[in-house]
Design a protein around this nucleic acid. Structure first.
Lengths: 389, 389
DNA sequence: CCGGTTAGTCCACACTGTTGTTTAACTTGG
DNA sequence: CCAAGTTAAACAACAGTGTGGACTAACCGG
């Protein structure tokens, strides 16, 4: 765990979240903690403002290409006046621009002024740390990938040199961000980990990374706010979607990321999403986790013998179980193995859903494919969520 | 669907939620809708105040018997001054009282003034509508049951007369609520339903209730704010618990209610919790839902042949799957069948969790039994959540 | 050109939580 | 017993939130 040159010694103008006006009020004890860790819902005026700013930004993003203030007022439930103040703030911060007016033929009155996100106003970094390679990318405010870079990883090696390389790549990728401030760096990792403190637990297949204080290590090397997340959870955040959705991953293992009620679900011990270890057959083959008949064990065993159909059937059953239990409206499929040959999986899942949902029409589930970049993009989205909430 | 005498023609002084001072600002379109239905997180000042009031009330409730203002300030993250103002409001509303001072030996300074909930300040009604009987109860502010009543139900009968009886029971049970205002009536029902509009879908085993506008019907008959909820979801709310917990139900069927991240999860179409229809054996016995090998089918088949052990094993496997997928910290067991003979189920679940969680120590799961009243109590808790958020 | 209509802003305001100061109610030490 | 020290809670002045009403801007239709 070499600690290396601390890179940019202080965060070069990054830490201020949405509002930029106040000099440095920050009553928070730790400089990067999210204001109040375990506050049970009590809100401050500053937090209120940030929340409403975020709500407006989200509404603008959701609208795609241009919304008016009136529409924002309707969508958010705030007054026109409140929207006026909030958008003024966001315009001053450079996050929004006015982009023409919306002339609707045969409609009297002053036309609405369109507002848009300024993609280059901020940027975010996201990385996927895998057992084979490290993938880093930078996105703009809309989440679109701007540049990316990759480097191989030796899973048995020490993390230190790799993190040094990561820091170097970060410097490269952020060198040319005009005035666009970098919001932070999201790191998506396999295996169980502690999201809150950014500490890895037993990362399967990467023995030297066991127990690593990843957040601290990368924060020291880059000077950026760092967020550590499980890869599947990052996957589900790769793009905005419905309030109830799941990202299902089939690669080296099987896992899922969950958004329920519009919120990422990490579970009590940040260990939710162990979708691959649901038991589908108490007498099935043994799994690496110690149990028997896990979905993951069934899938991997089938794949080893080339029986994609069986792997797909097992996965499909798991997805149907998940959909029935959680009533999600979208399932996003990802992971190298699955994306390498998606059709059989999609077909099997469609069949299973049709067979196992009592009313497939009413409970329609959208099935989509993630891109290969979903995980690092989701990691970047994590950094963007400082603005979008 | 007889419409009957509309009972107390207007809500007799009930509608104002926490704050009572303002005459009647209510900018909400519909009188009982929760201010703004689908507002994506935007808050106005009135909502901010209600939220903070609720946060303080929750903190007082969580503290059990008496907290001080300083402690509330710490817990909520608000300033002492803010707490002072908020508690003053709640004291004026009669929700809190000052109950002595906390003399701690060997501690200098002014002793803290203890604050407590006033149990009788408000009350809430909760009902469980089952296939065999209707169970109604009234709780105080703390959720403790004050009075209850029951009446048999003919599952094949018309709902109208039963709802009339319900309204009569409501009048009885609320006749002697001193000044304690009734916050509302929660109705827990089986089967798929639409929580938002309070409309039942196809309630299994109660054909005449199919498509009933239950909320409206009961609201008209009682004049109270009515909330309709699925029985399992009500069950999980029967008492405060950890932020990630599940209520698992084995009665006429098998189901679950979920609280994840401190929020009830109903799913995209308020159909989450179909825990009983996870497939544990693709070649298993056919289930009433049309699929094969559902947990519920396995359990019920085993129970029909008196094999409690097999039913317990199936349920335990499902619970283990649920815990791994969602990383809950508490599982509450309920339902008449299970509570009639809980030991084998508990033992099987403990065994399954020990076998299937990679680190049972770190991921410890508390297993508790619900009371027989959990469902109607949870329904009442739903009405209490107007105050507690 | 002018009235009608809609969008957005300016201003005064009510209310939120915050900061700084004062009062209340104890314990401690002489 | 009394003064000093300490902690709890309230009081007063304040910054900042969203709100309501009046006002201006920018279009349409005649």
């Amino acid at each position: 765990m070499t600690t290396d040159p601390p890179a940019p010694p202080a965060p070069p103008g990054t830490p201020a979240p949405p509002g930029t006006s106040a000099p440095a009020p920050a009553p928070a004890p730790s400089p990067d903690a999210p204001s109040q860790s375990s506050a049970p819902g009590a809100l401050n005026l500053a937090l209120l403002r940030d929340r409403n700013d975020a709500a407006v930004l989200r509404a603008v993003r959701a609208a795609g290409d241009g919304t008016s203030r009136v529409e924002l007022a309707v969508r958010t439930g705030l007054t026109a006046q409140a929207i006026s103040k909030i958008t003024a703030r966001l315009l001053a911060d450079g996050l929004l621009t006015e982009a023409g007016r919306s002339h609707v033929a045969g409609r009297s009155g002053k036309p609405r002024t369109l507002l848009r996100l300024v993609p280059d106003a901020r940027s975010a970094l996201g990385a996927e740390i895998g057992r084979r390679e490290l993938h880093l990318l930078r996105t703009d405010l809309t989440g679109a990938v701007v540049v990316r870079a990759r480097t191989p990883i030796d899973p048995d090696g020490e993390p230190g040199p790799i993190l040094d390389r990561l820091a170097a790549m970060v410097r490269e990728l952020t060198a040319d961000t005009g005035g666009g401030r970098v919001l932070g760096l999201g790191l998506a990792c396999p295996g169980p980990l502690d999201t809150r403190d950014g500490i890895l637990h037993q990362v399967t297949g990467m023995p030297r990374w066991h127990g690593l204080h990843l957040r601290e290590a990368v924060q020291d090397r880059t000077g950026l706010p760092v967020l550590v997340e499980k890869n599947t959870t990052a996957g589900v955040l790769s793009r905005p979607g419905p309030d109830h959705r799941a990202f299902v991953y089939l690669g080296d293992g099987v896992g899922a990321g969950l958004v329920l009620g519009g919120r990422v679900q990490r579970g009590a011990r940040t260990n939710a999403g162990e979708f691959g270890h649901q038991c589908l057959d108490p007498d099935g083959p043994p799994c690496a986790c110690g149990a028997r008949g896990c979905l993951e064990a069934l899938c991997l065993a089938a794949l080893r013998t080339g029986r994609t159909d069986r792997a797909a059937a097992a996965l499909a059953l798991g997805v149907a179980n998940l959909v029935r239990l959680l009533d999600v409206e979208e399932v996003v499929l990802g992971g190298a193995t699955l994306l390498g040959d998606p059709e059989p999986y999609e077909a099997a899942i469609r069949t299973a859903l049709a067979a196992r949902l009592p009313d497939p029409h009413w409970q329609h589930v959208t099935l989509t494919r993630a891109t290969a970049l979903a995980v690092p993009q989701g990691a970047a989205a994590l950094a963007l969520s400082r603005l979008f909430g």
